[in-house]
């Protein structure tokens, strides 16, 4: 299926906060309470529409376990967007956000759009982190913020799509150099500005990919 842009996302955060479940809810619209621990990285992809344009999200779901950190870091490179996830029922996952954020900023490009997500909003009775705290952290560090529930699907679509909107706006403003793939953005096969000057078998197919 053709698309105007492809955005690479990463999902990061402590182990057990629901990163893989958020991805599964977004790509497959289902919730799986028991899930294999992510080791290394897993993938998901979905097509969305922004401003009438088809945009393919290629999402890299990384392992949260600290023992795997030094390898998962290398996946941050070339991401246009990041979902930084904590669990509203576990304060320590919120306390670790600063480390995650430093890590992400250090190993990715400076324009990367970061969405802070407080997941498991369905577990209101077990809440340990107030919504206001999440908002304050986001404000302080220049992030977008949302509370989601991968279980009930509340705000899951919005989290992924709003991040894409922000990236899209940055492209319109010229902040992202879309010809540099290190920014995590690829132009779709038919939308390549250089396409017309190239033979049919040229860069179109390689840029289009067919990944994930």
């Amino acid at each position: 299926m053709s698309y105007a842009y492809l955005f690479k996302y990463i999902i990061i955060g402590d182990t057990g906060v629901g990163k893989s479940c958020l991805l599964l809810q977004f790509t497959d619209k289902r919730f799986q309470p028991v899930h294999d621990l992510t080791i290394g990285v897993e993938f998901g992809a979905r097509m969305i529409t922004i401003d009438g344009k088809q945009i393919k999200l290629q999402i890299w779901d990384t392992a949260g376990q600290e023992a795997f950190r030094s390898i998962t870091r290398s996946y941050y490179r070339g991401a246009a967007g990041a979902l930084l996830v904590y669990d509203i029922t576990r304060r320590d996952t919120f306390n670790h956000l600063t480390t995650w954020l430093e890590d992400a900023r250090q190993h990715s490009n400076s324009n990367m759009v970061i969405m802070l997500i407080g997941n498991k909003s369905d577990l209101e009775s077990r809440r340990e982190v107030k919504k206001e705290e999440g908002e304050a952290f986001a404000r302080e560090h220049g992030l977008i913020f949302m509370e989601t529930s991968a279980k009930t699907a509340a705000n899951v679509e919005e989290a992924f799509i709003n991040t894409a909107k922000e990236i899209y706006e940055k492209i319109q403003e010229g902040v992202f150099d879309i010809n540099n793939e290190a920014n995590g953005i690829k132009i779709g096969p038919q939308h390549s500005p250089t396409n017309t000057s190239l033979p049919l078998s040229g860069s179109g197919s390689s840029q289009g990919g067919g990944c994930c």
Binding site: G40, V41, E42, F43, S206, G209, G210, C211, C212
Partner: peptide, 13 residues
């Protein structure tokens, strides 16, 4: 199939 980095990783994964 000329897989790129992401496709290689995904395929083996």
């Amino acid at each position: 199939k000329k897989f790129d980095a992401c496709e290689i990783l995904k395929h083996f994964n």
